[in-house]
Amino acid sequence: MRYDESPPSPESSSSVSPDRRWFTRRSGLAVGAAVLAPTLMAGWVLVQLTTGAGADDARPPRIVMPAAATSPTPASSPSAAAPGAKGPLAGKTVVIDPGHNTGNFKHTSEIDRKVDIGTNLKECDTTGTTTNSGYMEAEFSLDVSRRLRTVLEAKGLKVVLTHEAGTARPWGPCIDERARIGNEAAADAVVSVHADGVSSGNRGYHVILPAKVKGGAADTAKIVGPSRDLGERIGSNFARTTGSAPANYLGSGTGLVVRDDLGGLNLSTRPKVFIECGNMRDAKDAALLTSPEWRQKAAQGIADGIVGFLGG
């Protein structure tokens, strides 16, 4: 697992390859022929470093056992909601946070800088993990996030990504900035996409929920309930769509983990969860995480959970 923060060892979690685009074209020859002979038609054309670093914290993350909760109720890459969107999703905004950045490996001094997460100081970001073959968690998280954006935009939602890596964002953003992006967008839901990096044999997904935290700039009292609702919906839809089981190494088989040590959750004022889609260090999970087809299912499952949470 490697999210905006550290992974919990074998009991921890760490807390994405470019999308393929389809397009059509009509050749000049076919167009010319169409003028002379309307029966002619044009055809169409179709057009993944090394081992990941550990936690963003030297000490193991604290995992808080879930307690029953009642559900109450400028950023990069913003998108406009679909024109004429109506119904319960109209005017709603979702912020998607692709875990880590592929450039973090080259900017270790920058991401090692400590930032305030309300309750203590933590590293700005971490590199994230990789599969044994070198496929980066950051590649995975960005790819799934882009696919997720496409699905949500088709539903009429406005979608903001915290970053898209590349030259515009060679490293980061820091965990406090990631939280701020969701807050400033007044997001109706925020989801941080990750994959874990624990030992082989540990498999499955889990969703990380915010604990009730108050300290400095952190106060999660208002988002604990709705975040649990969001996380439960995402977990159940993700399991159904991908066929994945809840993690067998934490969460007691529920696929849900509550944590109080993640800046991305502690500093959020909007309903927010992390999803660890699988374990990159397990060969069976890695085979899924490196599959474009499976990543599309992952994006769909997460999207279905978000839409259900928003009443769509």
Rank of each mutant, 00 (worst) to 15 (best):
P88T: 10
A55P: 11
T51S: 09
A53C: 07
N104W: 10
G91P: 01
H100R: 10
R62K: 13
N104S: 11
G87L: 06
A58G: 14
A55I: 01
G52Y: 01
P66M: 06
K106T: 15
P72Y: 10
T51A: 12
D97F: 09
P60H: 06
R59C: 04
G54T: 11
R62A: 11
G52W: 00
A75S: 12
T102E: 00
K86G: 02
P78C: 09
A58Q: 13
T50I: 02
S71G: 03
T93M: 09
G91K: 00
T50S: 11
D56R: 12
P72H: 11
R59Q: 15
P83T: 13
L89S: 03
R62S: 13
G103Y: 01
I63W: 04
K86E: 02
F105N: 01
A82L: 15
T51R: 12
G99N: 08
S77Q: 09
G87H: 05
P60K: 08
T70F: 13
A69V: 11
G84M: 00
G54D: 14
D56N: 14
R62D: 15
V64C: 06
A85P: 04
S71Y: 13
G52R: 01
D97W: 11
P61K: 11
T50K: 10
K92A: 06
A90V: 09
A75N: 07
R59N: 15
K86T: 14
D56Y: 12
N101F: 00
S71I: 13
N101W: 00
G91R: 07
T73G: 12
H100F: 09
H100M: 04
H107P: 08
K86A: 00
A69Y: 09
R59A: 15
A90Q: 00
A85S: 03
T70E: 15
A85I: 09
T93Y: 03
G99Q: 13
S71N: 14
K106W: 11
G54Q: 15
G54R: 05
T73A: 11
S79T: 15
P66V: 02
N101V: 02
V64Y: 08
G87P: 00
V94W: 07
K86V: 07
T51C: 05
V95D: 05
H107M: 03
G91N: 10
K92I: 15
A58M: 09
H100P: 03
A81V: 14
V94G: 01
P88V: 04
S77A: 13
A90I: 06
A68M: 10
T50F: 03
F105H: 04
I63A: 03
A55K: 06
I63Q: 14
M65N: 06
G103F: 03
P72M: 06
A75L: 12
N101L: 02
T102W: 00
A68G: 08
A90W: 06
D97T: 12
N104R: 06
P88E: 07
P88C: 03
K86P: 00
I63Y: 12
V95C: 04
D57C: 10
A68V: 03
A90D: 01
V95T: 15
G54K: 05
T93G: 02
N104F: 01
R59M: 13
T73Y: 12
V94D: 02
L89E: 02
S77N: 14
H100D: 07
H100C: 08
G103T: 01
P60R: 10
M65C: 01
G87W: 06
T50C: 05
I96V: 15
A69L: 14
G87R: 04
V64L: 07
